[in-house]
């Protein structure tokens, strides 16, 4: 019996020692960099949402726990954030929403005004749309995008997609990117599915008048 144990340790001591060493190495690295990694995620959201809600100076979550909101028949936890301006007044709301795009998921940051009546626009957190076609949804207004500016000031409610129309007119009609109707539709569908339930929930919770 003792021979067996001895053999076992002879064979595997290196494995055990190095597991401990590697584990420690990882623990130290993780401890050192974790705050930075978490800050990066928050910064990324703030940069996108802050670019849409220019008056907002900082964002804070409306509740300690993400709100459970029913979207498309499923309860999904959503971390809705309130954008606060310099004097502490609500400048708008921002949240992350998700839908399926042409090939992969799309994840958007959506910002709306203080009354939750009009959109302040959306930004793309993650997408994997076709280069040169669907990925035009990623082009920001500042970079001369055609699609994103149509949402700045669009009403919160049901948006519709058209193939012909005037993109300069800001209303519930969104003009599709030519050659990328599916990607354009994906953004509209996602926004339609998420915006109104979130508004209702905020009202029900008494966070929004």
């Amino acid at each position: 019996m003792s021979n067996k144990i001895k053999f076992f340790f002879q064979e595997s001591w290196l494995l055990m020692v190095s597991s401990v060493v590697f584990g420690l190495l990882l623990a130290i690295t993780d401890a050192a960099w974790k705050p930075r990694i978490e800050q990066n995620t928050i910064d990324r959201f703030n940069r996108l949402a802050g670019g849409l809600l220019t008056e907002a100076e900082r964002f804070e979550s409306v509740a300690a726990e993400p709100l459970a909101i029913e979207i498309g028949g499923k309860e999904i936890p959503v971390d809705v954030k309130r954008g606060l301006d310099g004097s502490g007044q609500t400048a708008g709301w921002a949240f992350v929403c998700e839908g399926s795009g042409f090939a992969d998921k799309i994840r958007l940051v959506v910002a709306v005004d203080a009354a939750f009546e009009k959109m302040a626009g959306f930004g793309v957190l993650f997408s994997n749309e076709t280069p040169g076609f669907g990925d035009k949804i990623n082009i920001t207004p500042a970079a001369g995008g055609f699609y994103q500016p149509q949402f700045i000031g669009a009403p919160v409610g049901t948006l519709t997609l058209t193939k012909s129309g005037d993109a300069a007119v800001i209303d519930a009609e969104i003009v599709a990117i030519s050659g990328a109707t599916v990607s354009s539709q994906a953004v509209v569908t996602t926004l339609n599915a998420w915006m109104v339930p979130i508004k209702e929930k905020l009202k029900a919770e008494g966070l929004l008048k």
């Binding site: 590697f22 584990g23 990882l26 623990a27 690295t29 993780d30």
Partner: peptide
């Protein structure tokens, strides 16, 4: 959990 760093391993 903090063990997330061990995911790849």
């Amino acid at each position: 959990t903090p063990l997330e760093v061990m995911r790849y391993l």
